[in-house]
Nucleic acid binder design. Structure first.
Length: 676
DNA sequence: CCCCGAATAT
DNA sequence: TATATTCGGG
């Protein structure tokens, strides 16, 4: 996207770097404490940087606004009287594409986390040592690189040849920056979405005479909003108009949303197919490890990208840039899972970006969303996800399940038996290790520490093992697969890591957490054989589910209509809602209109006994599914639920009170998202 | 008439 | 490919 190139600076990128790189890098140091500021300045100068200082955040902001090309990097103290360092960080991230390093006397992890989640590329503790400053230029280089990549990408979209030539300029609503930080709002589009931070610009084109509506580019930010809206509404009720309203992005038209929704649904469907395939694989009992590659998460890279490089993008109000995403995409590590391809598996090392890469969805993945796919496969939040959660400063911790022992031990066993060796691509090792340790911890019944605040995150890692464990899953999966002799129509092997995932996610990391279970994802196929439904692809059920929220647990599952029309005909009362904590779970059922709305669900997803939820939670199928659905459910779920299955369904619990904490970020409305 | 979703065009 | 536009229908 464009963005004007920052001239002046050096840049790291290959091209151009004629300047002696780090030397001369323009750094803006901000600290209300004169002494600290002086020290900082001195150190920075020693590093040969060109330093500008100010003791006021406001001033710093103004300076940056005046000429965004004047600085390459910002180092700001966290605690300042006039403006909270985080605020400054946020604004800078929002308005310009300049890496920001936070500085604080406190090394409280919470603060660090906050800084990182707000988009800081680094977080240094005072007293700062020159060693730490010597390499800060790397952040600039990194960002530059991303910018370049971004530009290239966008060039394609935008005009350049072919495509839109005349008139048709693409709009990137809001996005722009996406990768980097928000900055730029460049380009053409008349108005961007709200996000106030915005500013400037506006002029520019629009003009051209042609008045062709600018082509909407569904940037990550936009998509995020879209997903947020969808989640908020619940898939069943997410119709273009409503989504449009929720998104509150004016340039968009209902048609735009409708079109995107169409694609989104397609993605969901594909995902479900993937899941099915996975199931199939499991069912077949293939022992080929390659099938299980999915175990390798690359969280590390993601993590890095996520944290260090990028800002998180949040949903609306402010979107933070998430740099690094691109980079991530290009690296093998970027992929979350090794996938399953149409053939059923993917090659290890193979990049999973689905083809294009222009796809921002892939990028989104790195954002903090919980990867649906992973859920599909086991509902296990992958490392990345966990990391992301951390980053997001969401308070998440693993909470002990009531069934903890059961689950844990079981998991442990599985894990033990099947060490995750996976990994295919380079760079995974660390993750793998992490996972392993994580597992070990579980085995020992030590609770993992994903503690982030008030939220408790349930480690459902086990899920992955489940998948691997064919026997465990076979019942369910077999059913799914066996009956569907016919591959799904779409059947695109989607690498797990493919962008699809992102589509689902709430991408931003802000959600409180929920993870959805995927067990239900089988659905798609079912239509054919199982339910005897029509082949009509329209009838596939992508998934079913609902959101359960008990005082302690929140489970979200997805529900996608069986028939495309169902949305219209059925009106679930509840909606998924993440926000609605009170809801005890609403199940949306599709197709049949007889579904009670607002039902509480409980689902099949999580066996009550396992979770030990009190209150009757009856099985989903028994109570909430429409007849038709029930049939399907039976087909799929027949049999007692296995605890593992349970696990697989990622159940995430969140404490009641866990409200989002960080106000800034918190705002995410969606509970999460992921549908599916 | 409005809106939806699928199909089709670009 | 992704998005826009069209089309049939509720």
């Amino acid at each position: 996207m464009t963005v004007e190139n920052r001239k002046g600076g050096f840049v790291g990128g290959d091209e151009g770097s004629r300047d002696p790189f780090p030397a001369g890098m323009r750094v803006l140091a901000v600290d209300d404490d004169p002494a600290c500021l002086k020290i900082l300045e001195t150190l920075l100068m020693r590093c040969k940087y060109h330093v500008t200082t100010t003791n006021q955040a406001i001033t710093a902001l103004n300076m940056l606004r005046e000429n965004r090309n004047k600085f390459d990097l910002v180092i700001s103290d966290v605690n300042m009287p006039d403006m909270d360092g985080f605020k400054l960080l946020e604004l800078v991230g929002l308005e310009m594409d300049i890496p920001v390093i936070m500085l604080s006397a406190y090394s409280d992890p919470e603060l660090v986390l906050k800084g990182v989640t707000h988009g800081a590329v680094d977080y240094l503790c005072k007293p700062v040592r020159i060693e730490e400053l010597k390499n800060i230029w790397q952040h600039v280089v990194r960002r530059k690189k991303l910018e370049q990549m971004d530009q290239h990408k966008s060039l394609r979209n935008v005009g350049d040849h072919t495509g839109t030539k005349e008139g048709g300029h693409a709009i990137s609503v809001g996005t722009d920056s996406d990768l980097n930080g928000k900055v730029s709002r460049k380009r053409n589009d008349p108005n961007e979405e709200e996000e106030d931070g915005g500013e400037e610009n506006g002029h520019e084109n629009d003009d051209s005479g042609s008045q062709k509506k600018p082509r909407v580019v569904w940037s990550p930010d936009l998509h995020r909003k879209f997903v947020a809206a969808v989640n908020q509404l619940g898939l069943a009720r997410a119709v273009p108009k409503k989504i449009l309203d929720l998104m509150n992005v004016e340039v968009l038209t209902r048609e735009n949303v409708a079109s995107h929704l169409q694609k989104y649904r397609l993605y969901l469907k594909r995902i479900s197919n993937v899941a099915s395939q996975a199931n199939l694989v499991a069912a077949l009992g293939s022992k080929d490890p390659s099938y299980m590659r999915y175990g390798s998460f690359d969280g590390y890279e993601d993590f890095r990208a996520f944290t260090g490089l990028g800002k998180l993008s949040t949903t609306s109000p402010s979107s933070y840039s998430y740099n690094g995403m691109l980079g991530r995409l290009n690296t093998p590590t970027g992929l979350g899972f090794r996938g399953i391809s149409s053939s059923g598996l993917s090659q290890p090392n193979q990049l999973q970006n689905s083809g294009g890469s222009t796809d921002y969805m892939g990028q989104l993945q790195s954002q903090g969303a919980i990867n649906p796919v992973s859920n599909l496969f086991g509902g296990v939040p992958n490392k990345l996800e966990v990391n992301q959660m951390h980053l997001q400063n969401k308070l998440i911790s693993y909470q002990e399940l009531k069934a903890e022992d059961l689950v844990t031990s079981r998991l442990a066993n599985q894990l033990t038996n099947q060490p995750m060796t996976t990994t295919s691509s380079s760079g995974n090792s660390s993750l793998v290790t992490v996972m392993s340790s994580h597992l070990l911890l579980q085995k020992n019944l030590i609770k993992p520490s994903v503690q982030m605040g008030g939220l408790h995150f349930e480690p459902v890692d086990a899920g992955s093992s489940d998948i691997m464990d064919q026997s465990q899953c076979s019942d369910i999966w077999n059913i799914c697969t066996a009956q569907n002799s016919k591959p799904s129509p779409i059947n695109i092997p989607m690498p797990l890591s493919s962008p699809l995932n992102n589509f689902l996610l709430p991408l931003n990391g802000n959600f409180p957490l929920s993870i959805s279970s995927v067990r239900d994802s089988h659905i798609d196929f079912s239509s054919n054989a199982v339910s005897g439904c029509n082949d009509d692809s329209r009838h596939d059920i992508a998934c079913q589910g609902g959101l359960i929220s008990t005082s302690n647990y929140t489970v979200q599952t997805v529900d996608y209509g069986q028939s495309s029309r169902f949305a219209q005909s059925v009106t679930p009362a509840g909606g998924f809602v993440g926000q609605d904590v009170d809801h005890q779970g609403t199940a949306f059922c599709n197709s049949s209109s007889d579904i009670p709305s607002g039902v509480q669900l409980s689902p099949a997803v999580i066996p009550a006994d396992v979770l030990n939820l009190k209150g009757g939670i009856s099985s989903f199928e028994d109570n909430y599914l429409p007849e038709q659905s029930k049939i399907q459910e039976d087909e799929f779920f027949r049999g007692p639920f296995e605890p593992l299955d349970e696990l697989m369904n990622a159940v995430i619990k969140r404490e009641h009170n866990d409200v989002l904490l960080d106000g800034d970020f918190g705002f995410d409305p969606y509970p999460l998202g992921s549908c599916i």
